[in-house]
Design a protein around this nucleic acid. Structure first.
Lengths: 154, 154
DNA sequence: TAATTAATCAGAAACAATTACTGATTTAAT
DNA sequence: ATTAAATCAGTAATTGTTTCTGATTAATTA
């Protein structure tokens, strides 16, 4: 399967917002009976439209009080260097997001840690240990105004 | 409730990765019987450690092929101006993330759209219509190397 | 246009999970 | 040591999921 009809789209929009909805709830919301709804949800998962179901936890409540954005520039852009960097950075559990950017910098990282001390030791002992890093620029996040996993589908 | 014990932490680490695990699966994984596991999961939700359960959908498969980071600087930082901006930007469905930053720029946005054309009309018709914007700088994302909702709890 | 095929749906029945409850055990505090 | 509180395992009732069948609709071809 490859293309979504309007019912699929409504299902995805619902489950992106709240996947604790049961098949029954979804079927009621979209005006279809349980079994075809069940089949559609399964198909959406099987075909990779739904990657996974996850619980979103409150960052502050688990003690990750500091969010930092860090831009990274590498000394060289050889395939070898890029691969090493990407593999290493992906395995760092503090790093939530790694984006490869067009423009000035090579990468942007989003990092969640307990506090400034933790961030300092993260940069010192782990991030700056990766070879071929030419420049790091860290910006502290003062406030997380929006952080949404759901993308509205039209 | 306010503090997590080691069992709660293991539950959160599991459900952050995969919330399609049933109570039975979780209880088996942590070596507890079903009922206390059930109670703990409910408590974690009730007390706000778990904010919500969501389905993560594949961005490319739903046609959001372009991811853009956009830094925003405002002309002034009066409370009024900030509030207007934050409220307006939060309601834009294309905007997944809004961070208020310390440093050069005031805000960083993460925006998902279909293509460059869509981004252009988004900036023209919606983003730049917000009052008191002094500067916008857009960086296209070449590659999303990592994008993780789970934060490992220790 | 009519016949045929494929797809999608509703409903029911079997199955499995969740939820609530009870009593027992452990832990903490006096 | 005794009491009180918290946490646990097990069970039973409820509710939800999953599978299956037949019917209806939509699409395709002659």
């Amino acid at each position: 399967m490859d293309r979504l009809d309007s019912i699929d789209i409504r299902i995805l929009n619902l489950l992106q917002k709240d996947s604790s909805l049961g098949v029954k709830d979804v079927s009621a919301a979209i005006g279809l009976s349980v079994s075809p709804t069940y089949e559609r949800i399964n198909r959406l998962k099987r075909d990779g439209f739904i990657e996974k179901y996850v619980a979103i936890v409150n960052r502050e409540k688990i003690g990750k009080h500091l969010l930092v954005l860090c831009t990274v520039t590498l000394k060289q852009q050889s395939m070898e260097t890029l691969v090493i960097f990407e593999q290493t950075i992906t395995n760092f559990k503090e790093v939530l997001e790694v984006l490869c950017l067009a423009g000035n910098h090579d990468y942007l990282l989003k990092i969640a840690v307990k506090d400034v001390n933790d961030y300092h030791s993260f940069v010192l002992n782990r991030l700056s240990q990766i070879p071929n890093i030419s420049n790091l620029q860290s910006s502290f996040v003062l406030k997380e105004i929006k952080n949404e996993t759901a993308m509205e589908i039209v």
